[in-house]
Write a protein that binds this DNA or RNA. Structure first.
Lengths: 118, 118
DNA sequence: CTGTATCCCCGTGGATACTG
DNA sequence: CAGTATCCACGGGGATACAG
């Protein structure tokens, strides 16, 4: 048998769907990649982009994505430390899916979501 | 304030990304929608489509998606009960995102994933 | 065939406090 | 500024057994 223990984050290894979802799974991951799609951003900027994320979770997601080769982490040796996160080639590869998700979500919000005009 | 308790499955209510991800979040959800994109399927067929899913989880995901209006559940009054699940209009709306995810995943598998033939 | 009912594991995510 | 360190809650997901 191929699978005694699944990665838990990946339903079906070898499956395109799972391959991609394993990368952008996690509550905040898509938001982060979306934020980074406009160019590199710093830790505090990402916190502002994801208002309700905690520092711990942000760090762990960031580390995770870095380890998976989705993004890069660059520490600038400035007096107050400055860190910039940016997408790798792999991270860029994910953008079409991200964009598609955003598009679909936008359409759904227009439909059932009351415009709310606010 | 707006958010004491978040739905947990939706990072930022009102955000297109979260709107969409809230629907196709969950380990097996995308796989199920993908399986249903070819037309209605029965419970046992879905089990075969997702080899490692348990009956409990399959049921709960199915019920969840039904309640969210993503799919329909039709019980055929046959001697051995037969149940067919199919996508609703909302479910179909999600397909572009699903397809995009599959495409991205396929490309990723081609790149880093050695054919492995296993 | 199509589920239910339990029980349990564990990872994600959150809150808070502290640090170089 | 950019994290670490704890501790905790929750729910998803899994295994197994049973049921209409």
């Amino acid at each position: 048998m191929v699978l005694k223990v699944r990665p838990k984050v990946q339903a079906l290894p070898g499956c395109p769907m799972s391959k991609c979802m394993g990368l952008l799974g996690g509550l905040w991951t898509p938001e982060l990649l979306w934020a980074l799609s406009n160019g590199p951003r710093r830790f505090s900027e990402l916190r502002r982009d994801c208002p309700y994320i905690s520092a711990k979770v942000l760090t762990s997601r960031l580390r995770d994505l870095e380890q998976r080769g989705v993004l890069t982490r660059a520490v600038m040796p400035t007096s107050p430390p400055t860190v910039e996160y940016g997408l790798t080639a792999l991270g860029e590869d994910l953008l079409p899916a991200i964009r598609s998700i955003v598009e679909v979500g936008s359409r759904l919000l227009l439909k059932d979501g009351p415009p709310a005009t606010d």
